[in-house]
Design a binder for these strands. Structure first.
Lengths: 201, 201
DNA sequence: TAGCTGTTGTACTGATCGGTACAGTGGGCC
DNA sequence: GGCCCACTGTACCGATCAGTACAACAGCTA
């Protein structure tokens, strides 16, 4: 953890409140579009709290990235227990349900950040790491399928997982900007078909 | 055109200089991270020029979006003359060459913007429109293939084009954040394979 | 009770933000 | 030449930016 930890329950609660407010605002307005003052106004905390728990705004963003990953994975629990082709369908179904529940295609918090963070030497690696963590659950599931003999022995789970992630991200980006979930539906469908093309016959 | 046009060659040059500087800075630092002052400092123009040609910063961003689309399409000229499966390979080859020439995977300007612009009621539709323009060239090419009898008559060129775009965007996003072009290579490969699966046998 | 540490409120700083005011200057057209 | 209007330079505005200073507080231990 790069950021200052809270050492009492009260401090932990305050810190969480700040991160939550920042995560919500930065999701909508971006990092540069979200001032520290706005975060504190939204969280009800004072400036001294913020700078007690975070060295600067950048470290707050680091905490926000972690928060985003937690939120994302929490919305697709099936990714933790992938062990069959049916599980993969369940997983993509959960991805789509997020947007159906929201009433419209919503953006991926990490995807939003990825564009803005760009080549920031501190933050870009953290976004990269979050994506890799996300992807690693997919890769682990594919390895289980492979161990179960459902995925071809010569298939590369890491590479397949990366391919699936590109479909997810591309689908999310277009579905959101164009307010049309079919972009994500088709992308996931194509990805699943591609994965299945490496199934044992 | 939403923005004020320049009516003399000198004015046109000044306006272009401002948009170029803004496009470059916003590509790196994002919209909110790029102040009008920085744009003017980089372009050598004064504030009165900026507000002579643009009502406000938002209108400058509109011009930047158009500029991005021009740059993007200019880097993949094959997209304008698609009429065979080989042409599609040429096109994806040009997409990859952009990054090979740059020495590393670079981000898509529109993709960067898409995340930050998010749900901005003025700018998001413009990004959407830019994507659709980009995609329309792809769709037109697929229709040519269809007319030539190389693409199945029951295939949906619009839907296939959208699927290809999601692959491109997802591949670009991951390739950039992870500094690994294979993400884009694989995404394009999968996309082409998918398109070919709708070829006439 | 005293004292310590983690926590909090408020006031402030210098820099920068987007945008405006206004007095000019340039070059083309009659 | 003289006019006109697009164009330009500079100074300025109130608001907001990230970050700091510092005194006061809360709760636990001794």
């Amino acid at each position: 953890m790069e950021t200052q930890a809270a050492s009492t329950p009260r401090g932990k609660r305050t810190r969480d409140t700040i991160v939550d407010a920042a995560a919500g605002l930065m999701y909508v307005d971006g990092v540069a579009g979200t001032s520290v003052d706005k975060v504190l106004a939204a969280s009800g905390a004072g400036k001294s709290q913020m700078y007690h728990y975070f060295k600067n705004k950048e470290q707050l963003v680091e905490a926000v990235i972690d928060r985003y990953l937690e939120q994302i994975l929490g919305n697709q629990p099936a990714i933790f227990t992938l062990s069959s082709w049916a599980d993969l369908e369940t997983w993509t179904g959960q991805l789509l349900d997020i947007h159906r529940r929201a009433g419209k295609p919503v953006a991926c918090p990490l995807g939003n950040l990825a564009g803005e963070v760009g080549d920031n030497p501190k933050l870009a690696p953290l976004v990269d790491r979050a994506y890799r963590t996300w992807e690693s659950h997919l890769e682990r599931g594919l390895k289980v399928l492979q161990a179960n003999g459902e995925l071809a022995p010569d298939a590369d789970p890491a590479r397949l997982a990366q391919a699936a992630m590109t479909s997810v991200q591309g689908g999310l980006l277009l579905a959101h900007i164009r307010h049309d979930l079919t972009a994500l539906e088709d992308a996931l469908d194509i990805a699943l078909t591609y994965l299945r093309s490496h199934a044992t016959s």
